[in-house]
Design a protein around this nucleic acid. Sequence first.
DNA 1: AAATAAAATTGTAATAATTACAGAATTGAA
DNA 2: TTCAATTCTGTAATTATTACAATTTTATTT
Lengths: 140, 140
Amino acid sequence: MNVYEYLLSYDIKPSVQRIAIMDYLLKHHTHPCIDEIYIALHDDIPTLSKTTVYNTLKLFVEHGAAKMLTIDERNACFDGDTSAHAHFQCKCCGRIFDMPMHINENEMNEMTEKGFSVEEVHSYYKGVCPECRKNNSDKN
Amino acid sequence: MNVYEYLLSYDIKPSVQRIAIMDYLLKHHTHPCIDEIYIALHDDIPTLSKTTVYNTLKLFVEHGAAKMLTIDERNACFDGDTSAHAHFQCKCCGRIFDMPMHINENEMNEMTEKGFSVEEVHSYYKGVCPECRKNNSDKN
DNA sequence: AAATAAAATTGTAATAATTACAGAATTGAA
DNA sequence: TTCAATTCTGTAATTATTACAATTTTATTT
């Protein structure tokens, strides 16, 4: 399935900009922020406006085609992988990595029994990634 | 232990402002944002500056006396309870509730084996709280 | 194919959260 | 009491995000 059809499957009308942004999200698993996407696509679409990037990602999130991550304190990041998974942000280089997520049914049941309706599960870790650990130890 | 000694135990020099802010954090489990704290303490300390609230909470987080939550997209929230626990934010009223957290040792081991050094574990849920669910069903 | 209506995009201006910074106030030590 | 260091304050600057009106593009109707 191409990106055009992929957008349609989420009830999103495809446009040049929307296709380019979704394509970027699907091909780059860097969990990009607005600026990263804007800068990356600006070469191909010189008329692209940052407002469009904002609007488009908001649309994607509303339609379930992308997820917004609030892990980074500075600015929101976006993920085209909508499957259930956790994240790891390196405090040193700032990169966000995908991690497996095992949902704990006991916790879920506890919340449901208390009357909470759980719609989203977010799980992330912070620490130092293997690369930065290596670089840091090299300096000593 | 009073708040004065509590701050000292985290290597934080107590001051009128710092004591008031930490006292607020320890007594109110509402996961307040900067504004909530500023407005609440303004009556007692009319000279309090919002910059001081920012600086103080940054200091608390650096010393491990508070945790910053990036659950709410609008602005950062703070938690004086530094023990390991999860959170639940209601999409309807915006309130953040404490939830138990059971750390999954398997996930931890997976990351450690891959070379990641895990320093923080964050887990939160979004959905509708019991109160809002009740109010919503009443409207029908 | 031309005219029209609807939707999407753009750029600028406004808003809001956060940070930088310099001066004032407070604290602690000599 | 004096001096130095620290903390606090208020304003200005910065940055991310949103509002909005004008323009462009797309889809529909005639």
